[in-house]
């Protein structure tokens, strides 16, 4: 589905993000090939979430370019990025707490809904048919992520692990080309982590969605990623297939806490 015939779906080219004097991301370049799963790992404070926020338009790079489907998208705003087909989840879970699970996921579908805002209420027939079509798609996602039982539950009442799953469902409802997951397994127990890994792999194979995910814990992601990029102190220190990154000396140093001068 990439618009540039075989090139990367997303290209981050020498991107730096600064907060005042602090350089959170320092000239990082990386690529995601269509249909693949990329993991971005690194210790706390490595700049992973900042990089993801830059890609999704919440932060703007101070230098460098972000290219999506062959076009420069460096300065888009978050809602414009979403319109391009990039969906994301948040590290601390950003569900609509007052809404039910179903309404949350339906909201993820907003971009796919057509027609005039105002006339929706009047054109009852088409509007209703459209609502039903979207509802059917949402039910498919609900089945897929095995959350049938909590459909009507208010999002705020769910345990953390399930909230993360609902957030994934909401992101999927937009049928994204690229899915960005910010620590999808943080705060989960082993069983929940295994479930989440399975869902990520299934999303990738079933919907063909390209996925970039951030993880703190390097063990979990090695098994599910096609490629792993490692950040440390805002710089990329390694990038390659999991088995290669696993043996990389710089990565081992970063994770084992060898001092930086």
């Amino acid at each position: 589905m990439s618009g540039n015939g075989g090139g990367p779906l997303l290209e981050v080219d020498g991107v730096s993000v600064r907060f005042g004097a602090l350089v959170a991301v320092n000239r990082v370049s990386l690529e995601i090939q269509p249909g693949k799963i990329l993991a971005i790992i690194g210790p706390n404070g490595a700049g992973k979430t900042t990089l993801l926020n830059a890609v999704s338009g919440f932060y703007h790079p101070y230098e460098g370019r972000i290219i999506f489907q062959g076009q420069d998208r460096t300065h888009l705003k978050p809602d414009q990025v979403a319109r391009l087909g990039i969906a994301r989840t948040f590290q601390n879970v950003a569900l609509f707490k007052g809404m039910s699970v179903l309404d949350n996921i339906m909201t993820g579908r907003l971009l796919k809904m057509r027609g005039s805002f105002v006339l929706d209420a009047l054109y009852w027939g088409p509007a209703k048919r459209q609502e039903l079509e979207h509802r059917a798609f949402v039910e498919r996602i609900i089945d897929f992520l095995e959350i049938q039982a909590i459909r009507k539950t208010a999002a705020s009442r769910l345990p953390y692990g399930l909230q993360k799953r609902v957030e994934l469902a909401r992101a999927l409802a937009a049928e994204p080309t690229l899915l960005l997951l910010d620590e999808p397994m943080a705060g989960m127990n082993v069983e929940e982590k295994e479930d989440m890994c399975r869902f990520i792999l299934d999303v990738n194979s079933e919907f063909g969605t390209t996925i970039a995910l951030i993880e703190h814990d390097m063990g979990v992601v090695m098994d599910i990623s096609d490629r792993v990029a490692v950040l440390d102190y805002g710089r990329k220190i390694a990038d390659g297939p999991p088995e290669q990154v696993r043996k990389d000396q710089a990565v081992l140093d970063a994770y084992l806490g060898v001092g930086h001068e």
Partner: peptide, 16 residues
């Protein structure tokens, strides 16, 4: 309703 509940999440879904 989405915007009322969570600005960032609403933005990430393409709501201007």
């Amino acid at each position: 309703r989405a915007v009322a509940d969570d600005h960032e999440a609403a933005l990430s879904l393409g709501i201007p």
